[in-house]
Design a protein around this nucleic acid. Structure first.
Lengths: 212, 212
DNA sequence: ACATTTTTACCTGATATCAGGTAATACAAA
DNA sequence: TTTGTATTACCTGATATCAGGTAAAAATGT
């Protein structure tokens, strides 16, 4: 047997970490070297230690899981990263994979599924738990349907919109022209093909693109 | 010592269940008699078995945790029910307690906190994990700040709003007058003291009042 | 150094929303 | 039976949004 994969679990919930580590202790091929509760700590850790496999929650405080994955993969492309979350939004999973993720598991997956996915992932495959598979294989259309991300300024504006601010109020608050804010609004709506801010908000919140 | 509390864990994520049950195995006062993945199964179980303590996730598929708690407490007021969730929204916690919940724990709580809360709860206290405490004690004003709920019709309209429909489109779809929908809109905005639908959507989604 | 994206800004006109009223009917609870 | 809430509906006027266009700095990345 090859040496065991040095594995890190990242989740902001201690119980989840404990659950996963219990499960992983059955697997000979992995060795848990770290249990972390934030993306920041993860980045710090891998700068100083050797890591082969990361199991991480997508919804982490402060840093978004997708961005975190991207950052790590840029510096350490050899590390296998598997994402996890409670609900699976097709678009989110796609984003994660497009940013270098090696797999995606729903937390509602069974122990067997978890083990299967982890084993396959360290063999180099891109893996999904059953429910995730079902979801991402729904529209087999050609559209890769990559979710565009918001620019910094756009995020500012979306934040204020979610607080009920009007175009004028946003302009005042950000020291911009009314017309500029109007342009941003239009661009944002267009980006997500939404008809108005109501739909936009619903979309962003469902895809967790707001608090990131 | 009294006999151990017959305890059920309800969560749709097997790993979370495993994490919690690992933690509870340290406590002599509780005995895990069931690990369930849905509210429906929970209701079935307690109809046929004796249960003293329930630890349950608030975000469960199909049935909302608050309603579930209410239902159970109506028939079995002696059962101690502790709610759990990932994020804590003040309003949600209050709702849970108002519906008979005996405590609320954030999943980000430490093991020690978990244990402390469970022990206190079976002694009859209403318990909150530290983070929850911090959140619910913020505005110490007299307002019980009960979140008003949407009526059936209002829910219909809010659903359509979240899909980007305009007042006219909603009126057509629900066979109502444009003016009626306008009135509903105004009432809904007023109910939550929101300035426009954007803020409304953000509020509803953050408080999980939309898909419930 | 060049290409791309982001951020800034302007114009116009058609629609839509929001805030202020009022009020009748219906249905459930007290 | 009365009270209250929900649902329906109308009116007006001020403001805001949305959709169509264009375009020039400024920043970012390669």
């Amino acid at each position: 047997m090859d040496k065991a994969y040095k594995t890190i679990i990242v989740d902001d919930h201690p119980i989840v970490i404990s659950g996963i580590s219990g499960l992983l202790s059955d697997l000979e091929s992995v060795e848990i070297v770290g249990k972390l509760q934030s993306g920041v700590k993860l980045v710090e850790y891998i700068e100083e230690n050797e890591v082969d496999l990361i199991l991480m929650d997508i919804f982490l405080p402060v840093i978004n899981g997708v961005d975190l994955c991207k950052t790590i993969k840029q510096k350490y492309p050899q590390i296998v990263i598997i994402g996890m979350s409670s609900q699976s939004e097709r678009s989110l999973v796609m984003q994660f994979i497009q940013n270098g993720g090696n797999g995606y598991i729903l937390k509602s997956a069974s122990f067997e599924e978890f083990k299967r996915c982890i084993n396959k992932a360290i063999e180099g495959e891109i893996v999904f738990s059953d429910e995730v598979k079902a979801i991402i294989s729904q529209p087999q259309s050609e559209d890769l349907e990559r979710i565009p991300s918001l620019s910094r300024r756009e995020k500012d504006i979306v934040m204020l919109l979610s607080k009920g601010k009007s175009t004028q109020e946003i302009a005042d608050e950000l020291f911009l022209s009314f017309l500029t804010v109007q342009t941003h609004r239009r661009n944002i709506l267009q980006k997500y093909k939404t008809k108005n801010v109501a739909e936009l908000m619903a979309f962003l919140l469902k895809n967790n693109l707001l608090n990131a």
